[in-house]
Design a protein around this nucleic acid. Structure first.
Lengths: 132, 132
DNA sequence: TTTATATCCGATAGATTCTGTCGTATATAT
DNA sequence: ATATATACGACAGAATCTATCGGATATAAA
């Protein structure tokens, strides 16, 4: 409950890795996978996803890899989590409402308040707060 | 990702239900299950768990059920989540460390900072903030 | 004392999500 | 050409979440 997914963690590890290098320099999937002991195939998918989101830029071919493209300070954590994992919320009913309790639920409003607090907390931090 | 479990939601729904009634009055599992459209067996388990945690008090026999026992204002949300679901944290490595990345991880410290923020946010709210 | 209505509790099954793997295609530097 | 990268859909295994089943104990009331 209330945990990050591996995918988000792998993404952050990779971004921090890239952040630690010179701006133009390129990091390959293999390099990162070996360095941090991450299964290469799943890291590959994660990086492809970040590339599709224009957060990193892919370089094809030998000596290729990825380098940072977006300003990590401009992406807050709610935005980042949603771009990597989709809609965010303490309960599904805040973005998709096929919950059988929805018509009777007596805690929807208070939970939504807490959810707003959580969102606001994550929104107050940027990806760079993690990768620096 | 970052969602509450049904068990926690059912527990909160039940507590709010009890909170809305007179102090001495008793609510049965069936009454709550029907009222909020919750599978009765799983709600039963949840209430038994809350009883073991001394948050509610069981009354056996016909016309039995449960009534509030603890002061809900005294239980903060971190404590509540942990009493219902066990250890809490954005990543497992904050309370149990068989993560294969642990020796190489470059984001453990920043994530722990975010985790501390989240904990502090949940600690600043009590169960009563949800059930009132 | 029997009966009906509750809680109690371990075992298990089903569903969903999370995590990781495989195979194949495409791009490009040397 | 070849070697080394990314791209990507399909699938498989694992873990967690959610729900169900069966049978036990407790007690109020007929």
């Amino acid at each position: 409950m209330l945990k990050l997914t591996r995918k988000v963690e792998y993404a952050l590890i990779a971004l921090r890795h890239m952040q630690g290098k010179e701006l133009e320099s390129v990091s390959s999937t293999k390099e990162i996978a070996v360095r941090y002991n991450i299964p290469i195939e799943i890291l590959a998918k994660t990086l492809q996803h970040l590339a599709k989101e224009n957060i990193i830029e892919p370089i094809n071919g030998p000596h290729g890899g990825y380098r940072l493209k977006a300003q990590l300070g401009d992406i807050n954590l709610v935005e980042f989590f949603e771009r990597v994992e989709g809609p965010l919320g303490l309960s599904d009913c805040f973005y998709d409402s096929n919950c059988v309790q929805i018509d009777y639920c007596n805690i929807r409003t208070p939970i939504q308040r807490i959810n707003a607090n959580m969102m606001s907390m994550f929104r107050s931090m940027s990806v760079q707060d993690v990768t620096n």
